[in-house]
């Protein structure tokens, strides 16, 4: 799997233990979305990526809870 790229369809498949994961984000698990901004400058697997989740809005999420839908 390559790093995430803009426009990629993804799914939030689990919650994350990352400090940036907030309790309300548990309701995102199982939902689909699109990557709208991967890490902007550095290819860092630890960077937060911007994801637009269908019906929920746009959030920066850690990458360990996201998997691509189309690969």
């Amino acid at each position: 799997m390559n790093r995430f790229h803009k426009g990629q369809k993804i799914q939030i498949f689990k919650s994350s233990s990352d400090e940036s994961w907030e309790p309300f984000m548990d309701s995102f698990v199982g939902l689909s979305g699109v990557i709208t901004d991967p890490d902007t400058s550095i290819n860092d697997p630890d960077a937060l990526v911007e994801v637009s989740i269908e019906g929920k809005g746009t959030y920066r999420l850690p990458q360990d809870c996201i998997r691509p839908l189309d690969e």
Partner: peptide, 13 residues
């Protein structure tokens, strides 16, 4: 009256 996907995606809404 849920907003459209484009509006939901916009970080400023």
């Amino acid at each position: 009256l849920a907003p459209a996907p484009c509006q939901m995606t916009c970080p400023a809404g």
